[in-house]
Amino acid sequence: MTTETTTPTTATGAATAAPAGVLDGENPYTLSHLDALESEAVHIFREVAGEFERPVLLFSGGKDSIVMLHLALKAFWPAPVPFALLHVDTGHNFPEVIAYRDRVVARHGLRLEVASVQEYIDSGRLRERPDGTRNPLQTVPLLDAIEKGRFDAVFGGGRRDEEKARAKERVFSLRDEFGAWDPRRQRPELWQLYNGRHAPGEHVRVFPLSNWTELDVWQYIEREHIELPEIYFAHEREVFQRNGMWLTAGDWGGPKDGETVERRVVRYRTVGDMSCTGAVASDATTVEAVIAEIAESRLTERGATRADDKLSEAAMEDRKREGYF
């Protein structure tokens, strides 16, 4: 079953393009691949809204969470989005992304809850890592925020093409009372039938973009005219090299002695903590140029630019078992 949705604005307020999926000479009853993905995601949002009492959407200001919010706005238009946004702020986020997050929240009158890693460090509940990266420290604040908010469904922007552990996820991913993920408890999802049943204390992580690829995301951004933080496009920036990755200099602990800061033209394929998110050399200053660049790439965005996924062969799966996204 497919669902038609319309809205006069995108998640960032821009006017939408002409109705998608129908071009000159095309069969008007055939959905394009982007229409099919959009329809599936909208269906998932509505299923969760109907089945769960207190959903929440993880929103960092990265491209996947931006597309998720855009889809949620479409799913419930003209009514407001019926759930809050949650951001686990490491304190080492890119300033451009935080500024974008706040603009979008204000524009749409959304409710944003922030779980601060810095507050946990200051209070002694978490300890700073020697390498300075805070991505692995997000799990405890996330689980505490879920428990405090009594959220029973948590939307995440994970996609199966990103990383092998995420490829194991179902769209509805059951988490136990400790927030942990057990691959053996994954449920079948035949014919887009999703099982959200859970015991008290458990919750479900929901991934509306599971079947999307990085290229799909960017093609959808192009079609819907969605505004993104500027760091997704080529710009000159001070970076230094560590373990084969170009990292942004900052208070988080870089550069160290022997690491030289250079000004280079780069862009970011994915956005996370500054301490573990690498930039890539690029001259792509437009969405069209980014799409052409991604189409030629043979590395996933996380494989190319995320140091936290390179800690071990099973780094992502280990973190997911502990309650990570």
Rank of each mutant, 00 (worst) to 15 (best):
261 V>T: 04
93 N>L: 06
171 V>I: 15
305 T>D: 13
37 L>N: 01
130 P>N: 01
106 A>P: 04
190 L>W: 12
155 F>P: 06
269 R>A: 04
266 V>Y: 08
62 G>K: 04
144 D>S: 08
293 E>R: 08
132 G>M: 03
187 R>F: 08
82 P>S: 01
208 P>Q: 10
65 S>K: 03
291 I>L: 12
303 G>I: 04
75 A>V: 00
6 T>H: 11
224 E>D: 12
67 V>R: 01
63 K>R: 12
226 I>W: 05
120 Y>S: 08
111 R>M: 08
23 L>D: 09
78 P>K: 04
159 R>L: 13
311 L>S: 13
45 F>L: 12
285 T>H: 13
273 D>Q: 10
235 H>R: 12
8 P>N: 07
251 D>A: 14
76 F>V: 04
210 S>W: 12
48 V>P: 00
294 I>E: 12
222 E>P: 06
50 G>E: 12
186 Q>H: 03
288 E>V: 14
92 H>N: 12
44 I>F: 06
274 M>S: 06
110 L>M: 15
135 N>S: 14
12 T>D: 05
256 K>Q: 15
143 L>M: 13
103 R>G: 07
218 W>R: 00
280 V>A: 04
271 V>S: 14
209 L>V: 09
232 Y>P: 00
242 R>S: 13
12 T>C: 13
70 H>G: 04
20 A>V: 11
254 G>F: 10
82 P>M: 00
99 A>E: 14
17 A>T: 15
68 M>L: 01
247 L>A: 04
226 I>Y: 11
259 E>C: 08
196 G>A: 14
170 R>F: 09
8 P>G: 10
134 R>A: 06
170 R>P: 06
83 F>P: 13
128 E>F: 02
121 I>Q: 10
26 E>P: 04
31 L>Y: 13
286 T>D: 06
108 H>T: 07
241 Q>Y: 00
139 T>N: 11
277 T>P: 04
104 V>L: 10
135 N>D: 13
133 T>A: 14
160 R>Q: 06
234 A>T: 03
148 K>R: 15
